[in-house]
């Protein structure tokens, strides 16, 4: 491994890293918003909407991100909708993530026994107060491990962005290997930056889990 090559490649990888992180987290933010909305729709069994949500969740959970990205990036222009590769990446990740988050959040909500809500109401709380102070925090505590796993899974899925010509980490590595055959250095940097991206998330996840779950589950 040539340290000079690594030094030379570092700025390129840094740039790709920032782009990957940006799109990754934007996608995850979108996934959370979508997931929460869909989970509520399913939890409260809203008519019509929950059927649509069910269809969306099944569709996106059962197709690979790569296929979804191809569909959005190459398929949509054929019906006149043209979007940038970055927006496509964000949207694809957000839609995929939304379907996973929806299921994690819904199962958390459903795991809180109905009598907890009655207990809150018997103390005079309104439906909203019971949800805000009793149901939601417990559901969150239950969902946290699943949500964190989803975040990590989604960050790793960013590696397929290269397929829609986004200059992300994977694209940069492949590109440099193709140009200069510095395979070892390129792959080393690729692994390094992915670890750099995920390790802090993993640690933060464990910390959050420990903190929010202490009350209900202990150490």
């Amino acid at each position: 491994m040539d340290i000079e090559v690594i030094k030379r490649y570092l700025p390129l990888f840094s740039k790709a890293f920032l782009l990957t992180v940006k799109i990754g987290w934007l996608g995850i933010a979108l996934a959370f918003v979508l997931g929460i909305l869909c989970a509520f729709t399913l939890y409260y069994k809203l008519p019509v909407l929950s059927t649509i949500v069910r269809f969306y969740v099944e569709l996106f959970r059962n197709t690979p991100l790569l296929v979804q990205l191809f569909f959005i990036y190459y398929g949509l222009p054929s019906i006149g909708i043209r979007i940038s590769a970055q927006l496509c990446g964000t949207l694809g990740l957000g839609l995929l993530g939304g379907s996973y988050m929806a299921e994690s959040i819904r199962s958390g909500l459903e795991a809180v026994p109905a009598i907890q809500s009655e207990s809150a109401k018997s103390l005079g709380m309104t439906k909203w107060q019971a949800f805000r102070y009793i149901i939601a925090p417990q559901a969150f505590n239950i969902s946290v491990p699943g949500l964190m796993a989803n975040v990590i899974f989604l960050l790793k899925e960013t590696s397929v962005f290269s397929a829609i010509s986004l200059m992300d980490l994977m694209f940069t590595a492949k590109d440099l290997i193709g140009l200069h055959y510095n395979t070892t250095e390129s792959l080393f940097l690729l692994v390094l930056f992915y670890v750099l991206m995920l390790l802090p998330v993993s640690f933060a996840g464990s910390l959050i889990e420990k903190k929010v779950r202490f009350g209900m589950y202990g150490d």
Binding site: I115, Q116, S119, K121, G124, I134, Q138
Partner: peptide
């Protein structure tokens, strides 16, 4: 909000675990 004027204690306690 009349429920706050009636106290209720359940068989299974129903304390808030969090």
């Amino acid at each position: 909000n009349y429920r706050q004027r009636i106290g209720m204690v359940f068989q299974s306690y129903e304390l808030f675990p969090h």
